[in-house]
Amino acid sequence: MHIPFLSRRIATADPRRQDFFLGLRDGFPIALGYVPVSFAFGLLAVRGGLPPWIATLISLTNLTSAGQFAGTNLILAGASLLEITFTTFLINLRYLLMSLSLGQKLAPDLTLGQRCLMAFGITDETFAVASVERSEITFLYMLGLIVGPYLGWGTGTLLGGIVCTFLPASLQKALGITLYAMFIAIVVPPAKKSRTISIIIAVAVGVSSALTWLPGLRLLSEGWRITIATVVACLFGATFFPRKEVK
């Protein structure tokens, strides 16, 4: 079940093991992109007064950027547990959509345990890569895909927490762009091939820009901006460009 122009096959005897390594390969750039972001998270959390191990624990149990940044900020600000939980939940609501979308592409033979384990590794990036690169998602592919980013996210946080201010600011700033550059590398090739996908992306970008810059709407958190822009763009796409026959 490979998309021919996107997947380079790795020659191994066992096709199931091959899936794991394909996942590892696809996850590597995500892991690399996560290090500077989680590094910054570790830095901010420890600067704010949390010990490095708590910062790392947050990364290893939450595995989400916007949600844990917001939650940690609220912890540092001394907010109530209810406020912390509710805000984090709102920001993470978008995972409902991703999990739902990914569920449509799962290989049919997955057990409940496998599904529960895979679900933990759904992030904006692993979701995007898995759903764009694969037409059917197997357990071993997803496992391979998750391992690198998970370790990258945890390691980056720990390093950021320990090193705190060691990295020169200029380098930190330059690395801030890597994650977004990666997103661009993911969406541009399919957008080149499909006018519809280009339009969907344009709508999403337009809405998220409007929510960022228009007066009054600026108060929305980043998680809400992404959620609203996604829903609007996908409703638009499903209404005006319904796909004829989706397997």
Binding site: S101, D124, F127, V187, P190, A229, A233
Partner: peptide, 15 residues
Amino acid sequence: SFLYYVPYAVLGAMT
């Protein structure tokens, strides 16, 4: 169709 467009929309909105 909605679900098919989700990853592209999410990436666009995040970037």
